[in-house]
Amino acid sequence: MFYHEDTLQYEVEVEEPDPQFAKMLQQAVGGAEGEMRVALQYMFQAFAVPREHEEYRTLLMETAVEELGHIEMLATAITKNLEGAPEEAREAAREDAVIDAMMSHGQPRQALSSGLHAMPVDSNGVPFTGNYIVASGNLAADMYANIMAESTGRLLATRLYEMTDDPGMEDMLSYMIARDTMHQNQWHAAVDSLGEHLPVPASFPQEKENQDYSYTFMSTFDEERPDPETPWTQGESPDGKGRFDYGRQPGNGFADVEAMIEEMHNEVN
């Protein structure tokens, strides 16, 4: 169950509207690194957490709802950037300054399809897809996915920060970058709290895998090369269950494809 308060999570102000920056902000809404992705990712992960691990369900759901607030902030920022046009655009096209700026620098669909408001799309106008969401049902796997999501999200926010000199947008993005810092750290803390969980899934018996290859870094070069002596070719593995070594691909067997059933009509001429 969700409740909505008709105030923004954090103040959003735009001093000089910029349709081009509104287009860039769409990536933070509906892009692969955006807030729709993490909000739904954390929500669907939470749905899968059993009641005996309520603390993780609460952690995920609280963060999911916070991310919904970030979508609202960004949508507000996009609208405010679309409400006006730069001074030079107003001088060049007094009658249709906003539309002129939109067609020249922004996302035309923001004018044509949504009436100068945010859309659930990325900066190229590509609709948001649920394929961005990772919700595996394995808590450890999901936490690692969340660390990646917050890392790329923070990277996007810092890039957007560098693309604007509007004080209001810098302030909003500074807040969002700070929250990404917190979320990265909370997911790391959650992973650490899980105890022994590597390799994921830890519940699968390792004796069932071919342990001759469990900790070997495989060189795929055609010619044989010496061990480069890196942290992933030597020393103890992070899971503490093996030691890294350096080897080559086994190179056994052939791709012997059997003939398909007659009904597939896969003739070979």
Rank of each mutant, 00 (worst) to 15 (best):
S151V: 12
I147D: 07
V38Y: 00
A97L: 04
G30L: 08
E66T: 09
D142N: 14
E33L: 03
M61K: 07
A118Q: 06
P108Y: 05
L59H: 05
E11N: 10
A93Q: 08
Q9A: 13
G130E: 14
Y132F: 14
A149G: 05
R94D: 14
V65K: 04
Y56W: 11
A46P: 04
D122G: 05
L156Q: 04
L74Y: 04
E67P: 03
E35K: 06
I99H: 09
L68M: 15
V121L: 10
L68V: 11
N124C: 10
T79I: 01
G69W: 01
L139G: 01
I71P: 00
M119S: 12
P86W: 12
A64Y: 09
A111M: 12
P19K: 01
R109W: 07
L155I: 07
E83P: 01
F44W: 15
P108D: 03
F21H: 08
L155V: 04
V65Y: 08
G125Q: 08
R154L: 07
G115L: 08
T63N: 13
E54P: 00
T79Q: 14
R51Q: 15
K23H: 04
M103Q: 13
A145E: 01
A149E: 00
G125V: 01
L74R: 02
A118D: 10
M24G: 00
A93P: 00
S114G: 09
A135E: 02
Y56G: 05
M73T: 01
H70G: 03
V126M: 07
Q26E: 05
